[in-house]
């Protein structure tokens, strides 16, 4: 259980990820009603690549973001450790 405050880097990386993930949410809803917009699909691919890089960076530093085997886990089980999103 970690009880010391999260470092600045945690908030910075988290914000970068939130920004890229948000673009992907927006493009997802847009593509749901505009499936033939190839330009939007191209942008989706680009942001997906950025997301992959940022996710990897974040998870290496601060542990898995996704449950049930959807994120790499290290030699120690840290998924269930604090802080949770509403606590930071």
């Amino acid at each position: 259980m970690t009880h010391h405050p999260m470092p600045k880097e945690y908030y910075r990386l988290l914000y970068e990820l939130q920004a890229v993930d948000f673009v992907l949410v927006e493009l997802t809803l847009y593509l749901d009603t505009h499936p033939d917009d190839t330009q939007a699909l191209h942008e989706f691919h680009q942001y997906q690549r950025r997301k992959q890089g940022l996710t990897q960076q974040f998870e290496q530093a601060f542990g898995p973001l996704h449950e049930f085997g959807n994120s790499p886990v290290g030699a120690r089980w840290t998924w269930a450790e604090s802080p949770w999103p509403w606590q930071v």
């Binding site: 908030y11 988290l14 914000y15 990820l17 939130q18 993930d21 948000f22 949410v25 542990g63 898995p64 973001l65 996704h66 449950e67 049930f68 959807n70 998924w79 949770w84 999103p85 509403w86």
Partner: peptide
Amino acid sequence: WIYEKKLQYPVK
């Protein structure tokens, strides 16, 4: 559904 351990937008 898969939980993601982060908020969609920062809440301060």
